[in-house]
Simulated assay, not measured.
Amino acid sequence: MKNKNLENGKNRNLFKQKKSFLLLIASLIFVIGGIYMFMNAENSTGYRVINTLFTKEMC
């Protein structure tokens, strides 16, 4: 009976380690993706000229 309890404890710890590792990888991918999108964002100052709402308000 003791062996079975020890194995269950080891399996739970292993599952927790895998889960935390996957969460770490996912969070790193999320942060790197956010930085990548921020660096590649285009300048939207030309949007005022294209959009008619802004040009009507400015005149």
Rank of each mutant, 00 (worst) to 15 (best):
M1G: 15
M1I: 15
K2S: 15
N3A: 14
K4E: 10
K4Y: 07
K4T: 06
N5Y: 09
N5S: 12
E7L: 11
E7A: 09
E7R: 03
E7C: 03
G9D: 02
G9K: 05
K10F: 06
K10N: 09
N11Q: 14
R12D: 01
N13G: 11
L14K: 01
K16L: 04
K16Y: 03
K16E: 01
Q17M: 10
Q17S: 13
K18G: 00
K18N: 10
S20E: 03
S20I: 00
S20R: 00
F21C: 04
F21S: 08
L22V: 03
L22D: 04
L22S: 08
L23C: 06
L24F: 04
L24P: 00
I25G: 00
A26N: 06
A26Y: 03
A26Q: 07
A26P: 00
S27R: 04
S27G: 02
S27P: 01
S27K: 06
L28G: 06
L28A: 15
I29L: 15
I29G: 03
I29F: 12
I29T: 13
F30K: 05
F30A: 06
F30H: 02
V31H: 02
G33R: 02
I35S: 06
I35G: 04
Y36A: 09
Y36P: 00
M37S: 14
F38H: 07
N40W: 04
N40I: 07
A41R: 08
A41T: 10
E42V: 05
E42R: 10
N43W: 03
N43H: 05
S44H: 11
S44Y: 10
S44K: 15
S44P: 01
S44W: 03
T45N: 11
T45W: 03
T45L: 10
G46Q: 10
G46S: 13
G46V: 05
Y47D: 11
R48I: 09
V49M: 08
V49A: 13
V49L: 09
N51P: 01
N51K: 07
T52G: 08
L53E: 13
F54I: 08
F54C: 09
T55D: 05
E57D: 14
E57I: 13
E57S: 10
M58Q: 08
M58K: 12
M58E: 10
